[in-house]
């Protein structure tokens, strides 16, 4: 399992691995927002938590179609399925690798981009916390979507359509935590909901992903 994680991380950082793609997209979206909505700092600080969350979510989505498709194309997925590793472990490790190469950099970049959007001071802490809790769910749900669409030509569009509705609860509660945090309100309820969603997806979805992968590999 560790070998698979290390290989995926190595692949992500090698040429053409796609590391930084999500990060660059996140950066572009947040930098463009002030140009689009105007420079009034009060307006920007109102929408900052939502924009940052939406940007992070779409950036996560961007790299999902490569998550399993590359392994499927070169045959490693077939070989992994016949290896001693259970497929549940394979998809979990794949999701973890996706989070480490896409989700975690977004979490770390978010505070700096928050400055660009004039995010209120108390909001930074809650933005990072909510992204830290929310992004693993996005990787796990994304892996499920990737498992559903693996083997389809141009499956990327279908993948986005399948995964985006599943991202909605995470987006609602995650952005709510950041928004409430920024305005100094109580964050406990949305934070617990967000953490609950993440915990449930991590606990359940690897089994679903492995099951659909088995069917797709036939």
């Amino acid at each position: 399992m560790i070998a698979l994680l290390l290989r995926d991380l190595k692949l992500a950082f090698r040429a053409g691995g796609g590391f930084g793609l999500g990060l660059a997209f996140f950066l572009i979206v947040t930098v463009m927002v002030p140009f689009a909505v105007g420079p009034q700092s009060s307006l920007l600080s109102t929408i900052a938590p939502g924009v940052l969350w939406l940007g992070a979510l779409l950036a996560c989505l961007l790299s999902l179609d490569r998550l399993l498709a590359l392994d499927w194309e070169d045959g490693s997925l077939d070989l992994l399925a016949t290896a001693p590793l259970p497929l549940e472990a394979v998809v979990t490790v794949k999701a973890l690798a996706h989070w480490l190469t896409t989700g975690l950099p977004l979490v770390l970049a978010a505070p700096f981009l928050g400055v660009l959007l004039n995010l209120p001071m108390p909001g930074f802490f809650w933005l990072v916390i909510s992204l830290l809790i929310g992004t693993p769910a996005m990787s796990v749900i994304g892996t499920f979507g990737a498992a559903l669409t693996v083997g389809l030509k141009r499956g990327g569009l279908l993948l986005s359509l399948l995964v985006l509705p599943l991202y909605v609860p995470t987006l609602i509660f995650g952005a709510e935590v950041a928004r409430r945090g920024a305005t100094g309100m109580e964050v406990q309820t949305p934070l617990l909901m967000l953490a609950g969603i993440t915990a449930a997806t991590i606990a359940l979805l690897p089994f679903a992903s492995a099951a659909v992968l088995r069917i797709n590999l036939r």
Partner: peptide
Amino acid sequence: YASHSDGLKPTLSVTENLTFWAAV
């Protein structure tokens, strides 16, 4: 099992590819 495709990663070296499968 060895299928028609070899399951190799083009950006990994020969040693890295083999070491990975050995570890698996």
